[in-house]
């Protein structure tokens, strides 16, 4: 137990004290000194006493921010939202709205599980951007939205790509097609086009005779799409290795027609 400002003893005493003023002052000291954990405990105790009073605005903001600082983003988001609702005229309104959205951003999990928080965070950040178009936090907010969108893109792409991994090429083609349509401007587009071609290639190579020509043509079209989108790059290089097989067989089928 170590603190620059006050002895540990004083903190324990304040915790047990009945005197709101003592708690308030100490909480403020801890908050200013950056010991948000202790400040948070003390604010928590005094908040009910200040509800409806003019000091509440200040305290609730500190309280919410102390949660943010100790990385309890779930509660921080809730407390900032509450602050925004109950103090619509506050000077800190914009900052609180931003921190509420940023807390939700911090809650967004890794891409491979349920993305409910990610979607909420995008909505909240977007609402902030719309409400305060000239705020200084806008670049950061935009960046966060971009990160979250990228995460959703990655999720959808990995799911679609997995059908290629488990060798269900028909589903892979459908899922990648859906991905490309649903995620315009995604950085995964080139890769998605490649895997679509790869799936079409493998599907064409292992198909029934009577379907062969259609499948080969589909693979060729998938290649053309990739080539048109990005004529240079590592993916087209990989695709170039496969397309010769397709073209050779296509020639056979054109001739036998």
């Amino acid at each position: 137990c170590f603190s620059v400002l006050v002895s540990c003893n004083e903190y324990q005493k304040a915790l047990k004290s009945e005197d709101t003023k003592v708690k308030y002052e100490l909480a403020q000291q801890y908050y200013d000194a950056g010991d948000f954990k202790r400040a948070n405990r003390l604010f928590e105790q005094i908040i009910p006493k200040f509800r409806g009073k003019p000091q509440a605005e200040r305290i609730v903001f500190f309280y919410a921010n102390s949660y943010y600082q100790i990385k309890d983003y779930y509660t921080a988001a809730y407390q900032f939202d509450r602050f925004v609702k109950s103090h619509p005229k506050s000077e800190k309104l914009q900052e609180a709205a931003f921190l509420a959205a940023k807390s939700t951003f911090k809650l967004s999990p890794k891409y491979s599980i349920d993305q409910e928080e990610t979607i909420t965070a995008i909505q909240k950040l977007q609402a902030f951007i719309n409400a305060y178009p000239s705020a200084k936090e806008i670049p950061e907010a935009n960046d966060m939205v971009r990160q979250l969108r990228l995460k959703l893109d990655k999720k959808a792409f990995e799911i679609a790509k997995q059908y290629n991994t488990i060798r269900d090429y028909r589903s892979s083609i459908t899922a990648l097609d859906n991905f490309i349509v649903d995620h315009p401007g995604t950085p995964f587009k080139e890769e998605a086009l490649y895997y679509k071609f790869d799936s079409a290639y493998r599907r064409a190579m292992n198909t029934y005779e009577y379907l062969k020509k259609t499948r080969l043509t589909e693979a060729r079209e998938a290649y053309d799409d990739l080539k048109a989108f990005r004529p240079e790059g590592e993916f087209i290089k990989m695709a170039d290795k496969l397309i010769t097989d397709i073209d050779e067989e296509l020639v056979d089928y054109q001739e036998t027609k």
Binding site: S112, I113, D114, K155, Q162, Y163, I166
Partner: peptide
């Protein structure tokens, strides 16, 4: 799926 990764489920 708050814990289980997508690929475990989709397959």
């Amino acid at each position: 799926n708050d814990k289980t990764n997508d690929h475990v489920i989709y397959r």
